[in-house]
């Protein structure tokens, strides 16, 4: 029931927002994991903007459980996501928006 509701919600919301919101936020909001937590996990592992973006891009293009940042238990339960169908340009744009949304550089006081 929940899955059907979620799928319906997804279909409705797909018509709104930018490439990041349409292709990332909508799904993660319903099926998780939380994008903010995910961002800080990437930051903790990859440190710089260039490296975080590269790791995200490579994972989204070719999701591999060995390269996933999520705990093994989580992967056992939910598995890895499907390969992104976005074009390179769109995917990079989505990652740029994601970085911009949660970046810490320039926000530390």
């Amino acid at each position: 029931m929940v899955k059907i509701f979620g799928a319906l919600l997804l279909l409705v919301s797909l018509g709104f927002g930018n490439v990041y919101e349409k292709n990332c936020v909508n799904c993660h909001k319903i099926f998780g994991p939380d994008l903010k937590k995910l961002f800080f996990a990437y930051l903790l592992k990859y440190s710089s903007e260039k490296r975080v973006k590269k790791a995200l891009y490579e994972y989204l293009k070719n999701p591999d459980p060995k390269k996933s940042i999520m705990p093994k238990e989580y992967l056992k339960q939910k598995g890895v996501k499907k390969r992104s169908k976005l074009s390179d340009k769109e995917l990079k744009k989505a990652i740029d928006i994601y970085w911009e949304k949660y970046r810490v550089i320039g926000r530390i006081k």
Binding site: K36, L43, Y102, R107, I108
Partner: peptide, 12 residues
Amino acid sequence: EMHQSLGEDLHY
């Protein structure tokens, strides 16, 4: 601590 706040507390 700042990291664990997930960007809510960014006071250096």
